[in-house]
Design a protein around this nucleic acid. Structure first.
Length: 739
DNA sequence: TGATCTGCGGTTTTT
DNA sequence: CCGCAGATCA
């Protein structure tokens, strides 16, 4: 296959770039992945670069998987030895091998957000920090950004000085790192920070990886934070055979430490860098692209560039206004249903995007009602579910007995009669003697005050030891099944028999098949590797383009994807841009990030884009009013649909920015929030059914009304459905019919 | 010790 | 509105 075929001149130039640093500024849909993969193939084919010497880094497993697949198709022989991975799994692999140089053991656990929170909470308690005043979340965010900036506890404490809050955070940070190390655990941010530290302190290790990774590619470069930037700088070395691809207009992760200046600094660190711009878009219609260009032009801080396309105009952008978010959601569902029934589209053509995960609920409801299959990305992570975390915690303890959090999670699951009192005694003894929780546990009766409970803890220790012994001989999947068997986890759920229990069993079965897939496909099928892999799964990784389903996800998750037809919902001030972004008094940079997010959303669409907004929307249980989003006003009038007969339409600005950047603060103040909840907006005066009546529901079928409670805003009706059991619902939404 | 109840706070985005 | 944490009861 000719890797240069069909490339435009700029793409060609990028693909044929051999040695030295290269910055590719690639607009949305300009074929950047193609350029990256073809360049890899070109290096191998034309320059005899060994696949072994190539590293390609992405942010998500999904992106890595796609790149891997495309590279495999392009590079026949040796493609598997190209290292294609995310930042985090790259660091994971390096650390598994060399983390002993930093005083950890190679069986380290990876703490996720929940684990971090438990630890921070624990530390706040022992440091006597009032978490009402200084929230765990804030501490976690501070620690995370410090790590992203490669600031260790000591440096953080020094910078904190006498500032009360900051010095408290510094104290937690220091204790947090100490405790993690004691537990032989690291968090997400540590993966990066520790790898950088490893390279800094161990020249031999860095040299070894430098020698291997002679050619480095980085995707979504605009999202790199300082730690990631340092890492690739270390690997690339001064000669810098480094090729990065990014788009400053799609930088939407500054809250996670992403640093736009990494793009600007690129040419400073490597003055010899070549810069190539890819501005031709192959994805979207002219109307969509013009809309995107017009909106993003309102941002002041950006590298000026204008995407263009040879594609046809296509349909106009539809902008629809609704009274309520219900109608909005229903509209999206009905549009999809009618297009699919007319065979003009298939479910997988559609994506419904929104700003916050909470907005998915309504949409799900409406899709469900119409029987439209959908895939929800995000929300509660599969691996964060209780049953999954329980089982994984067992595996964590088996892999790493120092993981106090994991062992304390499972010590009484299933119930073993070891309660909080006993746990505290063991923990106290462990702390006093510098032992891990597990080590303390093995001391049994020696622990003061444990008394008769020691019989139970001893049994637990024996149980764990037996499992640990077996683990040596078992594959990951078998081990998991053994744990389930020995603990009676599924058995217990089966006896419970509720819908919820059934769902949990389903989740466990899914975990087993994930373990099965893992042990068949992983290069390193060890327990540590399995636990690492499941820790690093992102929501978006769960998406499968092959499915014939509508996809629901946040605008953030949508980055890097494309769909023939896109709905952007909740286009309202305070929702999108979010109220948070407007509160910050930072000269509008947060709003600019929201605008980039809007740009990302618009440019996901290939053919048809529908943007919707609603005057009222339920938020945390109260109905709130919203104005239409300023971003709608920034659309070019000549690209927007005049609207159907049913809905009123928006008057977009004729040209230019709707809101000069300098005016942001005044704008904020002359538009006070309307926060009064609307009572009786949806509440019917009375219901045409009563307790004991038989009613029918569009999805749940027929059932008997058990009770009706006047909840103020609406009636809450409890119905016992024949097929689905007892459900609680609101009369205004459920649209129950008396039979 | 375990199960149930109540009150409160939370939602911006995530590897 | 929902989920969680602490309080309260069996």
């Amino acid at each position: 296959m000719n890797v240069l075929e069909g490339l435009n001149p700029q793409q060609m130039e990028a693909v044929k770039h051999y040695e030295g640093p290269l910055l590719i500024l690639a607009g949305a849909g300009s074929g950047k992945t193609r350029v990256l993969t073809n360049r890899i193939a070109w290096l191998i084919d034309e320059k005899d670069v060994s696949p072994w010497n190539i590293l390609a880094i992405t942010f998500t497993n999904k992106a890595a998987g796609e790149m891997r697949e495309r590279v495999n198709n392009l590079v026949g022989f040796g493609a598997e030895s190209i290292w294609v991975a995310t930042f985090h799994s790259t660091c994971g692999r390096i650390l598994r091998r060399y983390i002993d140089r930093l005083g950890y053991d190679s069986h380290f656990s990876i703490y996720d957000t929940d684990d971090q929170k438990s630890l921070v909470k624990e530390l706040c308690k022992s440091l006597e920090i009032n978490t009402q005043m200084l929230k765990e979340k804030r501490i976690m965010a501070a620690i995370s950004s410090a790590k992203n900036e490669l600031i260790g506890p000591a440096e953080y404490a020094a910078a904190a000085g006498s500032d009360f809050i900051t010095s408290k955070i510094a104290a937690v940070y220091s204790a947090y790192q100490k405790e993690l190390k004691k537990r032989n655990a690291i968090d997400f941010d540590d993966m990066l920070m520790l790898t950088v530290e490893l390279f800094e302190k161990n020249e031999d290790v860095l040299d070894q990886y430098r020698d291997r990774f002679r050619f480095i590619m980085v995707d979504e470069y605009q999202d790199t934070n300082t730690a990631q930037f340092r890492l690739i700088s270390q690997l690339a070395g001064p000669e810098g055979n480094l090729c990065v691809v990014g788009d400053d207009d799609q930088s939407i992760y500054s809250f996670r430490g992403a640093n736009i200046s990494n793009i600007l600094n690129f040419e400073k660190i490597w003055p010899q860098a070549k810069v190539i711009r890819l501005e031709q878009n192959y994805r979207s219609t002219t109307n969509i692209l013009e809309a995107a260009n017009h909106v993003i032009a309102n941002n002041r801080s950006r590298k000026k560039k204008t995407l263009w396309t040879e594609n046809e105009n296509g349909p106009l952008i539809h902008v629809k206004e609704f009274d309520t978010a219900f109608n909005e959601a229903d509209f999206a569902a009905s549009q999809i249903a009618s297009l699919v029934s007319r065979r003009e589209a298939s479910y997988s053509d559609f994506a419904i995007l929104y700003r916050t995960n909470a907005q998915s609920r309504l949409l799900e409801e409406k899709l469900l009602m119409r029987g439209i299959p959908y895939r929800l990305i995000g929300g509660v992570n599969f691996y964060a579910r209780r049953e999954i975390k329980d089982l994984l915690s067992y595996m964590r303890v088996i892999d790493n007995t120092s993981d106090d959090l994991a062992i304390r999670r499972v010590i009484n699951v299933p119930k073993r009669g070891i309660g909080a009192a006993s746990i505290n005694k063991v923990a106290g003894y462990a702390a006093a003697n510098g032992l891990s929780f597990y080590e303390a546990l093995t001391r049994g009766v020696q622990i003061p005050g444990l008394g008769r409970a020691a019989v139970k803890t001893d049994a637990f220790v024996t149980f764990l030891q037996a499992l640990r012994g077996k683990a040596q001989l078992l594959t990951v999947r078998k081990l998991l099944e053994e744990i389930i068997e020995q603990t009676g986890y599924i058995k217990e759920l089966r006896e419970e028999g509720t819908d919820e229990a059934k769902e949990r069993i389903g989740n466990i079965e899914e975990l087993i098949s994930k373990a099965a897939v893992f042990e068949e496909t992983a290069a390193d099928p060890s327990l540590s590797a399995f636990l690492e892999e499941v820790s690093l799964v992102a929501d978006i990784d769960e998406m499968d383009e092959q499915e014939s389903r509508v996809v629901l996800m946040t605008l953030h998750s949508a980055k890097g994807l494309e769909f023939p037809r896109v709905f952007m919902t909740g286009m309202e001030e305070d929702i999108f841009p979010s109220s948070m972004s407007m509160m910050e008094d930072d000269s509008g940079s947060a709003v600019e990030e929201e605008r980039r997010l809007c740009y990302v959303g618009i440019t996901r669409a290939m053919r048809e884009l529908t943007m919707t907004w609603a005057h009222t929307r339920m938020l945390r249980g109260e109905t709130r009013y919203h104005e239409r989003s300023r971003f709608l006003g920034e659309l070019p009038a000549d690209r927007v649909d005049a609207g159907g007969p049913k809905e009123k339409t928006v008057r977009p600005s004729s040209s230019g920015p709707a809101l000069p950047s300098g005016n942001r603060s005044t704008f904020r103040f002359d538009k006070p929030f309307k926060r009064e909840p609307v009572k009786a907006a949806v509440k019917a005066d009375r219901l045409d059914y009563a307790q004991g009546d038989t009613v029918s529901h569009i999805k749940f079928g027929t059932g008997t009304v058990l009770s009706i409670v006047d909840g103020g805003k609406d009636y809450e009706v409890t119905v016992d459905f024949e097929k689905y059991g007892v459900k609680k619902m609101f009369a205004g939404f459920a649209k129950l019919k008396k039979l």
